[in-house]
């Protein structure tokens, strides 16, 4: 094995790392923002709110992310009316297609995590809030969501790592993320070990960093649940 190839290509790998982290961060932020109303709707007793959201969650969790990306990036080009509309500026770019697919996917998984946590909120907490005369909105804002989101931290940490690993699919639709960079190095030098092991190490380091951050977050936010 000749790791001087990697040293020569470090700038490319770091550029790929930048794109990977950027895609991850943007998708997580959009996904998180979407997931809060979605999880409240999915936990609702009103079927008009619950069933559409649960269908969305079921479809996005039940099909491979690769298919979701392909539908958005390759599939949408089938429709002439879309190609002629102003939205085509977005859908013709691999970058935005990746962001849309990742965001919707993580929104579905995250909403399912939060939904579970919302439903597990202790009855006493909600009754106390009602007794204080809180409106439904205030209950969610001050009681249910803060407690449910805290309890979701360990599961959400897994979802973040899952999303990090899912961003490699950006490399499949021609983007040069960390995986895309490794693919380029491999095809230029025919060096699969050097390129994919280096990329793997980068991913390992990011994974460990995420695990560490979530350990800190758990220690901080879940102190009251520790025995």
């Amino acid at each position: 094995m000749d790791f001087s190839i990697i040293i020569d290509n470090l700038p490319l790998l770091f550029k790929g790392l930048g794109l990977t982290l950027q895609l991850l961060a943007i998708s997580l932020v959009i996904g998180f923002i979407l997931s809060i109303p979605l999880s409240i709707m999915a936990a609702s007793i009103n079927p008009w709110l619950r069933i559409p959201v649960k269908t969305f969650i079921y479809i996005f969790r039940g099909t491979p992310l690769l298919i979701q990306i392909f539908i958005i990036y390759y599939g949408f080009s089938q429709f002439d009316w879309l190609r002629e509309s102003i939205f085509w500026v977005i859908f013709k770019q691999a970058y935005w297609c990746a962001v849309i697919a990742f965001s919707l996917n993580t929104a579905a998984y995250t909403a399912e995590i939060f939904r579970g946590a919302i439903l597990q909120t202790q009855k006493g907490e909600i009754e106390a809030a009602e007794a204080c005369g809180m409106s439904r909105f205030d209950q969610y804002r001050h009681i249910i969501l803060p407690s449910a989101l805290r309890r979701s931290i360990p599961m959400y940490g897994n979802e973040v790592i899952f999303m990090l690993h899912a961003t490699v699919l950006a490399g499949v639709i021609t983007l040069v993320d960390l995986f895309g960079a490794a693919k380029i190095i491999n095809s230029r030098h025919y060096a699969p070990f050097e390129s994919f092991i280096s990329a793997g190490l980068f991913y390992l380091v990011i994974t460990f960093t995420i695990v560490f951050i979530f350990k800190l977050a758990e220690n901080h936010f879940l102190k009251h649940l520790k025995r």
Partner: peptide, 10 residues
Amino acid sequence: GIPDLVLMML
């Protein structure tokens, strides 16, 4: 710690 596709390529 390592994405599935990276392992598959490897």
